[in-house]
């Protein structure tokens, strides 16, 4: 569905990624892990034309999307939840959610989706008319996730969604992500919480110094390298 082919990318003169190949199959969860500064977020930013791609191509549903502009990607069904407090602070929570439904004309469907998000995250309903800056870190994350649910994406890209969430909310989050997969949404996720992420992933890529050094399914947890770096060997 989404494929990055031999991507070199970076920011003006700074090169971050080298020959990155990632493939997200339809209806699957793909997780990208790696130490800080490995270039995980840059992978996502290069898909969204925020980082500069110097080599390679990106394909979505067999169509070359390398040169598409950031704002055009939503139209073809690629949506993203960015890292940390990624909401419009001076807009109300409801406006924040509705901005996700911009592409839908039918008001009934919009209301239905809104109800669904409110049902999933009741805390957002309680504060729906307030501005987003009042939310706590975890609530911000829920709002960002809620907005991406309004967008009805065919692929959802998540940049460290569990960052700043309490253990209980993290559990809720991973459950929600698995539910999204059930609904047929493909997912590409960058995650710090490697163990949990791998456990729900169909495919995991390990990124180090801007290169993919390892890929595999759930059995990747048994890999020595992963054990050493992530599960307390070092």
């Amino acid at each position: 569905m989404l494929e990055l082919r031999d991507i070199d990318a970076g920011y003006s003169r700074l090169k971050v990624l080298h020959d990155v190949c990632i493939k997200v199959e339809s209806g699957k969860i793909v997780v990208l892990i790696g130490p800080n500064g490995a270039g995980k977020s840059t992978v996502i930013k290069s898909i969204f034309s925020i980082a500069d791609i110097t080599k390679g191509k990106i394909f979505f549903k067999n169509k070359d999307i390398t040169d598409m502009k950031t704002h055009e990607l939503v139209d073809i069904g690629i949506c993203m939840v960015t890292q940390g407090r990624a909401n419009f602070n001076s807009l109300t929570i409801e406006e924040n959610l509705l901005i996700g439904a911009d592409r839908i004309d039918n008001k009934k469907i919009i209301d239905m989706k809104l109800d669904k998000v409110y049902h999933k995250f009741p805390v957002l309903k309680k504060k729906s008319k307030q501005r987003a800056y009042i939310l706590s870190g975890g609530e911000h994350q829920l709002l960002a996730l809620g907005r991406s649910l309004m967008q009805s994406p065919s692929i959802l890209i998540l940049d460290e969604p569990s960052l700043g969430l309490s253990p209980k909310l993290q559990k809720e989050l991973f459950k929600t992500i698995s539910e999204l997969k059930e609904e047929g949404i493909s997912i590409l996720m960058v995650e710090q919480n490697a163990k949990k992420a791998i456990s729900i992933a169909d495919m995991t890529y390990l990124l180090e110094d801007g290169r993919i050094v390892l890929k595999g399914g759930k059995n990747i947890l048994k890999n020595k390298k992963i054990k050493k770096v992530y599960l307390g060997g070092r």
Partner: peptide
């Protein structure tokens, strides 16, 4: 209005606005 709301969104966070599909 929708354009007004988009203006406030762009004023808040330009990059996020374009990720959300707003033509900045």
């Amino acid at each position: 209005t929708k354009i007004g709301r988009d203006m406030r969104a762009v004023a808040d966070d330009r990059q996020l606005a374009s990720i959300m599909g707003i033509n900045t």
